[in-house]
Structure formats: structure tokens, C-alpha cells
């Protein structure tokens, strides 16, 4: 199973690089949806033997939320608020991808120095989680639109989630569901917030949200 897990982790890396290089918001949201579906495979893959109810439940919840509900909410926010479809980065796409590759190298170096426990199903998971956190942060700070900040948050959350699933054999299912629930409410609340910001300001450019200072 370990090869499959590595495959999933590599896919996560590739989807992040794709987000960094993509100029259309719709495309970014779809890539993140794909990332969510792939992420949903992890609970099934890390289990040994036949899938248990717990794993199936988690897989279904993860795929459903991150692969379908989140993108639906975000695409709806785009449509309802009438947001322009370009990403409008502060840092160009090529430089973004380059930054992504550099942070990948840094994550591999950093992650390699962590003493992973024997229960970890893949030695890749530390570097991938760190890379996703870097990537998420980068998307948050380097893109102009509020909606891309939500995407960055989802990437970070996905990284932490992958880390937890692969590293820890058994987090109680209630805790996992609580975590998923929080992620769902976060995206929902942020989506509503974007709608209100668009209505009040007629734009969702976070660099113009700079009245409060000092």
C-alpha cells in the first residue's frame, strides 16, 4: 500500500504547483477539489486489510466535503459576488512556481531531519505536510483576492490533515469529524464574509482593506 500512499502524496505536491501556476480562479478551485478527492483516498490506503466502517466514513466525509462541497461553495461565491476570474497575483506565475519548488526543497530538507515514528506509513509525509503549509501561506500572502486566501487556507488544512492521517494510526473518529466540521464551517463563514465584503466595497481585493492601522 505504501506505493499508493506515496502516489497520493506526490499528487498533492503536483496539485499545489498547479495552483501556483494557474491564472484562472475557476481552475484553481477545481484543482483544489481534485486535491480534496485524492486526499480522501488516504484514510482507506493507510488502513491494513479490509476497509473498516471508520475509514469508509472518513473517506466519504473528506471526499464529499473537500471534493464537492468546498468547490461548490467557492464557485457559488464567485458567481454570486460577480468576482472577476483572474487570480491577479502580486508575484507572477513563473516566480510563484519557482518559489513553490524552492519551498519544496526546503521542506524535503527540513522534513528529513524530523524523527518520524515507526507508525508513519510513508517517509514522504513530513516533507509534503510542510510543503503544503508553505504553499498555503504563499498563496495567502501573494494573491490579491480574498477568495484566494480561502484557497490558501484549504491547502494548509489539507497538508495538516494528510500529516495526521498518515502519521497517526488512529485518531478517534469523533475528533476527525470535528476537525472536518471546523474546516467546513471555516470555508462556509469565509464564503459568506466574501459576499458581504463584495457588497460593501464592490471588490474583494485584500490589498485595499487597509483602513485600520496603528
Amino acid at each position: 500500500m505504501s506505493a499508493w500512499i506515496d502516489g497520493v502524496l506526490v499528487t498533492l505536491i503536483l496539485t499545489n504547483l498547479a495552483v501556483l501556476g494557474s491564472s484562472r480562479l475557476n481552475a484553481c478551485i477545481r484543482i483544489i477539489a481534485l486535491q480534496g478527492v485524492v486526499l480522501g483516498l488516504l484514510p482507506i490506503l493507510v488502513g491494513e486489510g479490509a476497509p473498516t466502517i471508520r475509514m469508509t466514513l472518513l473517506t466519504a466525509a473528506t471526499m464529499g466535503l473537500k471534493g464537492a462541497v468546498f468547490p461548490w461553495l467557492l464557485l457559488r461565491a464567485l458567481r454570486v459576488a460577480g468576482i472577476r476570474r483572474e487570480v491577479e497575483p502580486f508575484i507572477g506565475y513563473n516566480w510563484s512556481v519557482l518559489a513553490g519548488l524552492l519551498s519544496l526543497a526546503a521542506s524535503v530538507w527540513l522534513g528529513g531531519r524530523l524523527p518520524m515514528p515507526e507508525t508513519a506509513r510513508s517517509s514522504l509525509v513530513g516533507p509534503v505536510a510542510l510543503f503544503m503549509i508553505f504553499c498555503g501561506l504563499f498563496v495567502i500572502v501573494s494573491r490579491r483576492k480574498a477568495i484566494t486566501q480561502i484557497l490558501g487556507y484549504i491547502i494548509m488544512e489539507n497538508g495538516a490533515y494528510a500529516f495526521g492521517v498518515v502519521l497517526l494510526e488512529e485518531i478517534p473518529v469523533l475528533v476527525e469529524l470535528g476537525i472536518l466540521m471546523d474546516a467546513f464551517v471555516a470555508v462556509f463563514v469565509m464564503g459568506v464574509a466574501i459576499y458581504h465584503i463584495q457588497r460593501e466595497f464592490d471588490h474583494v481585493d485584500v490589498d485595499q482593506l487597509d483602513t485600520l492601522k496603528g
Partner: peptide, 17 residues
């Protein structure tokens, strides 16, 4: 709204850490 958005994003990212 500006304050709310900053609170939401900064704290959510922090709490993800």
C-alpha cells in the same frame, strides 16, 4: 468588515499551525 476578514484569516491560519 475589514476587521472581521483579518480576524478570520489570521486566526484560522494561526490555528491551523
Amino acid at each position: 468588515l475589514e476587521a472581521m476578514w483579518k480576524y478570520l484569516i489570521i486566526c484560522s491560519v494561526g490555528v491551523a499551525f
